[in-house]
């Protein structure tokens, strides 16, 4: 039986925009899906979609590698309304929480 864990994070930048992250992880510690929504702007906007697509079906155990790929995409994206560093840290934070949660689920 495959267990799916859903983790979410919400953030509102002071005098900026809103970001909502939703991560769905399975008990094999793979990302089933990541949804990035909000009222921010990003240029080019497709890079946010590429980011979500890249993370989908990735193994959380390779979190360092995932982070390098996220950094690479974000550095080529101008995000308006959310500080880029904060954006990256929120995603990384959620991925780390996802990894802990699925490891706990595996132990049970």
């Amino acid at each position: 039986m495959t267990i799916k864990l859903t983790l979410e994070k919400e953030y509102k930048e002071p005098r900026g925009k809103y970001l909502h992250l939703k991560l769905i992880v399975n008990d094999k510690c793979c990302i089933d899906d990541i949804v990035i929504t909000g009222d921010f702007f990003a240029y080019p906007p497709e890079n946010i979609d590429k980011l979500a697509l890249m993370l989908k079906r990735s193994a959380l155990l390779n979190i360092d590698d995932l982070m390098k790929r996220i950094e690479n995409l974000i550095k080529n994206t101008e995000i308006i309304g959310i500080n880029s560093k904060t954006f990256k840290e929120l995603i990384l934070g959620l991925l780390k929480e996802g990894l802990k949660a699925c490891q706990r689920a595996k132990e049970r």
Partner: peptide, 10 residues
């Protein structure tokens, strides 16, 4: 709605 929004959230 904006490009990055979700209908159900907004």
């Amino acid at each position: 709605i904006g490009y990055f929004q979700s209908v159900s959230e907004s």
